[in-house]
Design a protein around this nucleic acid. Structure first.
Lengths: 138, 138
DNA sequence: GCGGTAATTTGAATGATTCAAAATAAGTAG
DNA sequence: CTACTTATTTTGAATCATTCAAATTACCGC
């Protein structure tokens, strides 16, 4: 399915900006609006950082992208949606990678008590050191 | 142990501002800098929001408070530190409560793959609806 | 192709946070 | 108790990511 078709199937018009944003996120997952903007700007020179924010918000609302906000980072976006995957974040450089699932599967994600809250989803963020930072520390 | 002693034990001077911030967080855990500031301002009228940010950063660096940043909220602070507890966040109003632990204990928090990252901690955020929002929706 | 409407553009505003220099106060030594 | 040293606070400004709103543009069904 082409990027354009994916957009139309989601009820969105297939504009150059949206296509460029989606393709930028394909090659660089876990990018913030500014990184996306820099890549998109070469394909769509008239764009702006505000437009990229608009587009990312639209795509996320339509379920085409997912937004994550690790502490200390700007919002990051990725195209991998619909599954329940989590993330590892490097506490030194902020690098992010996907973590497919946690040992113990779904039951693992049920809290023992919820203080009266109805829980819909669980979000797990692993904090550690990425290979690059580990190498440069040694 | 008094609040002052706790500060000195952590290597920090016991100032009125710091005492007031710690006591504000005792009565209102999961408060952001602005909420803390409003409470502290009545005890220390010369303070400012920037000072509260300074203090919260110092306290967090000293391990006296913990900082969490749920997506969509400003940074929140709490005095409960040293344990590995997690949080439930209301996706409607942003209310936060503690979750003692997840079923499955520590192994639950080991990711299946870490993409070469060395994982130090796991942070779990449960998203749902708080009792108040559930009641007002009905 | 035309028109209606969604989307982008442009410019400004916001909120949380950080930075930096000057003023102040905590703790300590005498 | 006093003075000193240095941590801390104060004050004011700056930054960053993000959001808002009005005007322009461009997508796409007809």
């Amino acid at each position: 399915m082409s990027t354009e078709t994916a957009l139309r199937n989601a009820g969105l018009r297939a504009t150059a900006g949206r296509v460029a944003v989606l393709e930028a996120l394909t090659s660089m997952p876990h990018s913030d609006a500014d990184h996306v903007f820099r890549v998109v700007a070469s394909a769509v020179p008239t764009t702006s950082i505000q437009s990229v924010h608009n587009i990312l918000a639209d795509l996320t609302a339509a379920g085409l992208t997912r937004r994550i906000e690790p502490a200390g980072s700007a919002a990051l976006f990725e195209r991998r949606v619909g599954d329940n995957h989590h993330h590892v974040v490097c506490s030194q450089c902020g690098a992010v990678d996907d973590v497919d699932c946690v040992v113990g599967h779904a039951p693992c994600l049920a809290p023992a008590t919820t203080a009266g809250f109805t829980v819909q989803t669980a979000e797990v963020t692993f904090w550690g050191t990425c290979p690059e930072c580990a190498a440069s520390a040694a």
